[in-house]
């Protein structure tokens, strides 16, 4: 048992094999330390599962089970039903990548929500199948380079748009669904803590930059995550029973280029060689950048990210304080045996 840190449990501890600067490792560490060791974690196949369990070594200092790629929500449903039948209210958490959420896991997730299981489902959205070598998923944004959507003479990267999974989830009329990202720790913390006070199915989509798949410098995972929000490409919102109940206002909207140019997966848009018509009718990188800008603008309009009547904005949420603004409360807890 790792007790190196008196102020944090380290539910997901060191020695894991994630790439240097991994945003998914960062996000999972934040989420699991906020929830603590007194919970049962069900993990779908994907990077998080692979890099935390290796050669009979585990990074988990809490009860943890690996399902398969598709069925994490179904396995968790069974765990939850068994616990509740015994009168045990230990929290049950699912962790999955975007492949295990948007694509192959969607059916089990939908069933879990529809049956009203008391489970928090956390999707670490790194916008591709990273574990198997950066294949496109339905979460991969438009115009991104992946190994299965290579840019070239006939293509500007992925033709299709990023699936709006949050709307699909919210359409289940379920208690709580929200988005978060690593750059805004205090926002993420508030959402995890809120989710843990709610009974029933809950869903968190956490944008988790991937230095390998997004092809940015390992030191920039937090900066890139912040820019995704500040450009409007990844709105931070909360939905309760299908209604938008809060958003993080953008103090200032940044142009999408600021976000795109840090990442190799968008590099082709800046030195485009393609002459092809893409699925959306655009013919070159510059047009795709305009398209991505329009997508950001549309999201900003949809969630009223510039007008929302809230004190909670990107500047306020970024601010730090001497002696922190509060971290993790779960120190001293032991893993349930």
């Amino acid at each position: 048992m790792d007790k190196r840190d008196p102020y944090r449990h380290n539910v997901l501890t060191s020695g894991h094999r994630a790439c240097s600067g991994c945003g998914e490792a960062m996000a999972a560490r934040m989420v699991t330390d906020l929830i603590g060791a007194n919970a049962i974690y069900v993990n779908a196949t994907g990077c998080l599962q692979v890099f935390t369990t290796h050669n009979q070594q585990s990074s988990w200092q809490a009860p943890w089970i690996h399902s398969v790629f598709a069925n994490a929500a179904a396995v968790a449903s069974g765990v939850e039903a068994a616990l509740r039948a015994r009168g045990d209210d230990t929290p049950v958490i699912v962790q999955a990548g975007d492949g295990g959420t948007f694509d192959i896991g969607l059916q089990c997730l939908s069933g879990m929500i529809e049956r009203g299981h008391d489970i928090l489902f956390v999707c670490y959205d790194n916008e591709a199948y990273m574990n198997t070598g950066v294949q496109r998923s339905s979460s991969t944004p438009h115009a991104v380079r992946t190994t299965t959507s290579p840019p070239g003479r006939l293509s500007e990267g992925k033709h299709h748009l990023k699936k709006d999974v949050l709307s699909i989830i919210a359409a289940h009329h379920m208690p709580y669904a929200a988005t978060a990202t690593v750059a805004f720790f205090h926002d993420l913390k508030a959402k995890v803590e809120k989710a843990m006070t709610i009974k029933g199915p809950r869903f968190l989509q956490i944008l988790s930059p991937c230095p390998l798949g997004w092809d940015h410098d390992a030191s920039l995972s937090v900066s890139v995550s912040r820019l995704a929000v500040e450009t409007g490409l990844f709105p931070l919102v909360e939905l309760e029973n299908g209604e938008v109940t809060s958003v993080m206002r953008l103090k200032q909207q940044r142009p999408v280029q600021d976000y795109l140019k840090l990442q190799g997966r968008f590099k082709h848009l800046f030195n485009s060689t393609s002459t092809a018509e893409t699925a959306t009718g655009n013919a070159n990188g510059a047009a795709e950048i305009r398209h991505l800008q329009a997508l950001a603008d549309a999201r900003i309009r949809r969630y009223e990210l510039l007008q929302a009547e809230t004190e909670w904005d990107t500047v306020r949420a970024s601010q730090v304080q001497r002696h922190g603004r509060g971290g993790y409360r779960n120190t001293g807890q032991e893993a349930a045996s």
């Binding site: 840190d5 944090r8 060191s14 994630a18 600067g21 560490r29 730090v320 304080q321 971290g327």
Partner: peptide
């Protein structure tokens, strides 16, 4: 000034707060 940023953001739990 003990803002906790390095501690929160390290993906590897390699920053220990004491």
């Amino acid at each position: 000034f003990q803002c906790d940023n390095c501690w929160h953001f390290c993906p590897d739990a390699a920053v220990i707060k004491n």
